[in-house]
Nucleic acid binder design. Structure first.
Length: 329
DNA sequence: AAGTATCGCAACCGCTCCATA
DNA sequence: TTATGGAGCGGTTGCGATACT
């Protein structure tokens, strides 16, 4: 549009604000309100551009700003809101009283983004990272899965994020393996898969079944099993899949008939909109409201970001024996 | 103790949106 | 309908603080 930025004004001071400048700005706004930001500096006796004054006020001097470290609950809320709204920092900030968009943005970029990446979650899509490079990172991921015995309750909210991380990490391993197994051209060394199946991931055949990949998996295993040293394990997995497959996919959680061919695996959390500008704000608000109510329900139940997995059904005994009960729950 | 690398935050930049004439 | 100005937003930068060697 060809406007001239107000900060191009000659002789206007830039950089850090001095306490004297802060005082002038605060006193002026307390007395007169900010009015037109463009004209404020002159009226307040400040050698700054209006934009700089507005930023200083909204991000630092405003009296209702909450200072200090982000609480665990705030972290969880930011992650959740970001999964729904994407990088709409101002929208996110309106739902965190006392926090500014700039503060939340900075906190996201410096802390939460890294945290999610460490969990193996894509901070943009909020979905597990699903590429084969992940396999190379398995030792790190598996170390996350060793966080055990952290029950889900309001009193233990400090542990909740870490518990979620552990679950995400385990699910991500499964998804990566499923990806490998279901590939029409499996290229990853079969001995690595075998080692994983034989140690940490005994329950994989059940989840392979639930993923709706039975035909591909069986074919993939048949091809890969030539490289298995232990043919018995490969055969057992295939048997498990064959036994459970039809049963699992005869009905879904609502009792509707679901076949392996059309079964769609539930997503873990809402992903960021590809183009949030095209998303209706009311729709987003509804998503947030409904999600918030489920978050509130977490105080009385064990509601987690994995609620969508409720549609999967395994017998308690099987799940417990195979060590996946906590995930399936 | 000194030098270097990394981190975190405040502030800036440039773009878009919206109101208005 | 269009041009313009004001405000707000998201991305980026720069610098001080802290950690590491």
């Amino acid at each position: 549009m060809g406007r001239y930025p107000c900060c191009d004004e000659v002789g206007v001071k830039k950089g850090p604000w001095t306490p004297e400048e802060d005082q002038k700005l605060v006193e002026y706004i307390k007395k007169n309100g900010h009015g037109s930001w463009r004209h404020l500096p002159k009226s307040a006796g400040l050698n700054r551009c209006g934009k700089s004054c507005r930023l200083r006020w909204t991000n630092y001097l405003r009296p209702d700003i909450k200072r200090g470290k982000f609480e665990e609950e705030e972290e969880r809320l930011i992650i959740h809101l970001h999964s729904v709204l994407g990088n709409k920092w101002s929208s996110i900030a309106t739902r965190l009283p006392g926090r500014t968009d700039n503060e939340i943005k900075n906190y996201w970029n410096t802390h939460l983004k890294k945290k999610l990446l460490l969990m193996g979650i894509d901070p943009i899509t909020h979905r597990p990272i699903t590429n084969l490079d992940l396999i190379a990172n398995l030792p790190n991921l598996l170390s996350h899965t060793n966080i055990k015995n952290l029950s889900i309750s309001c009193d233990q909210s400090l542990h909740q994020l870490h518990t979620d991380a552990a679950q995400f990490a385990r699910i991500q391993i499964i998804q990566s393996l499923l990806h490998v197994l279901s590939s029409p051209h499996p290229t990853y060394p079969a001995d690595i898969l075998l080692q994983l199946m034989n140690s940490k991931l005994e329950g994989i055949s059940q989840l392979v079944s639930a993923q709706g990949l039975i035909p591909n998996v069986i074919e993939g295993l048949k091809r890969s099993s030539n490289g298995f040293d232990d043919q018995e394990i490969a055969s057992k997995i295939m048997d498990d899949i064959s036994k459970q497959g039809d049963q699992l996919f005869s009905t879904n959680a609502d009792g509707a008939v679901v076949t392996a061919a059309n079964y769609s695996f539930p997503s873990l959390v809402s992903s960021s909109p590809e183009n949030t500008s095209s998303v209706d704000q009311k729709q987003l608000d509804q998503q947030i409201i409904s999600s918030n109510s489920s978050s509130a329900a977490a105080c009385s139940s064990s509601s987690t970001p994995f609620d969508a997995w409720d549609g999967l059904h395994f017998s308690d005994q099987d799940a417990a024996e195979l060590g996946w009960k906590d995930i399936l729950e």
